[in-house]
Write a protein that binds this DNA or RNA. Structure first.
Length: 663
RNA sequence: GCCGAGGUAGCCUAGCGGGUUGGGGCGCUCGACUCAUAAUCGAGAGGUCGGGGGUUCGAAUCCCCCCCUCGGCACCA
């Protein structure tokens, strides 16, 4: 009997909508689990909402609702999303439920009992008006080193230094804006430092993706610090005998245990998995939470006498159209957007699973999405399935597939072996490329065998060819089912396979007589107009975010033509340019504005060299009140486009005399 | 700044215990075919292997320096 497996996904934080970054972890995990099941493994797949923590409390407050109401909303949302995209957890729980609190408290008590938790007085920012202690990200003040505006724990806009509690000057509460004070308070710490040797040893044997393991090993070799595991909040799991809750990163991973308990009800004993170590535990996470899963979590488990994870599989981060994923800057693809577009959900599953190595960053692009769907899924895989099934149905109706060429069976078996091997190495792109290659092989075979000619001359021979092709099609449907379950279930029906209950090895056995139904077209093409629409939606979102960030209003107030006429704008020719001493952004320009040479200062030195601009025609606002900049008098202003804060020079469509008016 | 991952043709990538002309896929060009969703099949063009230096008879592959991208840096999920 093989060791059963428990597969988990990093818990989505119930504070925002599902986006493509979430799917980057969940889709491959789901596909992996489906393959395991088709390999006959006993596997439990769990996940759930992470419901605690400060941001949820603060956001709920902002909206004037309770944290639970906020969590309800996103918990439901995620469940709907997962259902819609065929991510099938055996259990999807939530960390604000009773059973999870019970499990967490028991866990923490065990840590205390084993001597791994100790109290310590620390100084924390406290807002007298809100009457509460403030997490660092809700404290704003002045950096004692450089004088910039800084947040509680780091001078994020200035010198970048890490700030210790109590260091920041003039602390203010970011929520209500009033002055904060520092107060001492007793908190509890987890003795992470006691686990250094254990972790070094453990990480040597932990399996998973290298990006996670190397990163964790490096951290542990350095200095570990004990870890504060309590917070001043009402919302969360109560810390035993204190008016504090446990830190969300303590209780969230314990969700893996409490959700397993629920998933195991009437099925198995969760203790076999989490206490007795009888199952293999595999965590799928995003690269951003490696620290918690490879360091905190194993130490906690060890400290509380639980079983340890066997593998941590970390997915790379998602970029959007080449830019760093950012909700606030608009570089985000919500799963809802995708649903609204009405695309087959299997496309997105394939795209995410196949786009690049699981460990690498995935650069989401609607254009690439369209190409992959139209050229790979449809042209290669879909076309092979359809041309074979359609040909067989139209010409024969039923085909005896009790005998298939050795060459074909070998190819099918090779493909299975390669897929399985790739999965074991978490090389998901390789796994899916492998069955796509089989589809390519099928197309070549069909093309070379020319059954459409044979049917006229040698019906028997044609039938043998088609039997071979049908066996290839069966294999393809089975092998690609975990990635594209919805479509492959449909295609399976046309060819008489119940894929849902199939095993991978079924592709290696012969079905006998296959009765064909009129095949459905497996996939609809992705339309360019739809893609353009999605791109426009994203551009709109990005632009709106940029506006909001810069604080620029959509349009300035309406002005009279007379107001505009007051501005004297002319085309001038730059006749001389040099850098302003001591200023890296400034150039001193001499500009011919039509019989008169003006001196002005322009902030373009970071983007243009003096010799690049001499001779150029540029628009100049000549009646601007003169100003002294860095000791140099500027009699006017050169106009330029502002692109992300960088100047881009403007010039007339054709040569015009200096002094020409702009109106 | 520190740590990790990465930088190979327009895009996705293989190769990285050094060794015959750096593989594959998409796109592109040309040709073939028509069973099939203008799908398929064949051929071809396209690369200073991030930059520079070094080791070597020989480097994408080893060493040094630099540049760029992404993630993390713990009381922030």
């Amino acid at each position: 009997m093989k060791r059963p497996k428990l597969v988990t996904c990093g818990l989505p934080y119930a504070n925002g909508k599902a986006h493509i970054g979430h799917l980057r972890t969940y889709v491959p995990a789901d596909v992996y689990v489906r393959y395991l099941k088709m390999l006959g493994e006993d596997v439990i797949f769990i996940c759930g909402s992470d419901c605690h923590g400060t941001p949820i409390v603060v956001n709920a407050e902002k909206e004037g609702i309770s944290p639970r109401e906020l969590v309800d909303r996103y918990h439901d949302h995620f469940q709907k999303v997962f259902k819609a995209i065929d991510i099938e957890f055996d259990f999807f729980g939530r960390t604000d439920s009773e059973y999870h609190h019970v499990r967490t408290q028991e866990f923490v008590k065990k840590l205390i009992e084993n001597g791994y938790v100790f109290p310590k007085e620390i100084e924390l920012a406290y807002c007298p008006r809100c009457q509460r202690f403030l997490p660092d990200r809700y404290v704003e003040g002045i950096c004692p080193y450089c004088g910039s505006v800084a947040r509680g724990d780091e001078c994020d806009q200035g010198c970048g230094r890490h700030l210790e509690p109590g260091e920041i000057k003039e602390p203010k509460c970011k929520i209500c804006g009033s002055n904060a004070v520092f107060r001492k308070q007793k908190h509890y710490f987890f003795r992470l430092t006691a686990f250094k040797d254990f972790l070094l040893d453990y990480l040597e044997n932990l399996r998973g993706t290298e990006n996670a393991l190397n990163y964790a090993k490096q951290w542990v070799k350095g200095e570990l610090k004990d870890w504060c595991i309590t917070r001043n909040l009402e919302w969360g799991v109560k810390f035993p005998d204190e008016d504090l809750v446990v830190y969300v990163w303590v209780d969230a991973p314990i969700g893996y245990i409490s959700f397993t308990e629920k998933a195991c009800e009437n099925r198995c004993d969760w203790r076999d998995i989490w206490i007795n170590g009888k199952a293999e535990i595999i965590h799928f996470i995003g690269l951003d939470i490696v620290y918690h899963h490879c360091i905190f979590w194993p130490a906690m488990l060890k400290g509380a006498n639980y079983a340890l994870p066997d593998a941590v599989v970390a997915s790379g981060m998602v970029k959007v159209e080449g830019k760093t994923f950012s909700k606030s800057r608009g570089y985000v693809v919500w799963v809802e957007d995708y649903f609204k577009a009405g695309f087959n959900t299997d496309y997105l599953r394939y795209y995410i699973f196949n786009y690049t190595s699981h460990q690498r960053d995935l650069n989401f692009s609607w254009g690439v999405f369209r190409d992959k769907v139209n050229n790979e899924i449809i042209a290669t895989l879909g076309n092979f399935l359809y041309r074979v099934m359609h040909f067989a149905w139209k010409n024969f109706g039923s085909v005896d597939v009790s005998e298939v060429d050795e060459e074909i069976m070998q190819k099918i078996e090779e493909t299975r072996d390669k897929v399985v091997k790739a999965l074991q190495q978490w090389e998901f792109k390789v796994a899916s490329d492998t069955f796509m290659e089989l589809a390519g092989f099928g197309n070549v075979y069909f093309q070379n065998a020319k059954p459409w000619e044979l049917i006229k001359e040698d019906r028997e021979k044609c039938l043998r060819i088609i039997a071979n092709c049908l066996q290839l099609a069966r294999a393809l449907i089975i092998y690609s089912f975990p990635v594209m379950p919805r479509t492959m279930e449909k295609m399976g029906r046309c060819i008489g396979i119940d894929v849902k209950s199939s095993k991978l090895d079924d592709a290696l056995s012969l079905p006998g007589v296959v009765r064909l139904e009129r095949p459905e077209v497996p996939f609809e093409k992705v339309d360019d107009r739809k893609i353009e629409e999605m791109e426009r939606l994203m551009m709109k979102r990005i632009r709106r975010a940029e506006m909001a960030e810069k604080g620029v209003k959509e349009e300035k107030e309406i002005v009279d033509i007379e107001d505009f006429k007051r501005l004297d704008i002319r085309i001038g020719r730059i006749v001389k340019a040099e850098k302003v001493k001591g200023a890296k952004k400034l150039l001193r320009l001499e500009v011919d504005i039509g019989g008169e040479i003006r001196q002005l200062v322009a902030g373009i030195a970071e983007d243009y060299e003096p010799e690049d601009v001499v001779g150029r025609l540029v628009p100049i606002l000549v009646n601007l009140k003169p100003a002294k900049i860095r000791g140099v008098v500027s009699q006017g202003m050169m106009l330029a486009a502002d692109v992300d804060g960088r100047p881009v020079l403007l010039h007339p469509d054709r040569e015009v005399p200096p002094g020409s008016r702009v109106r």
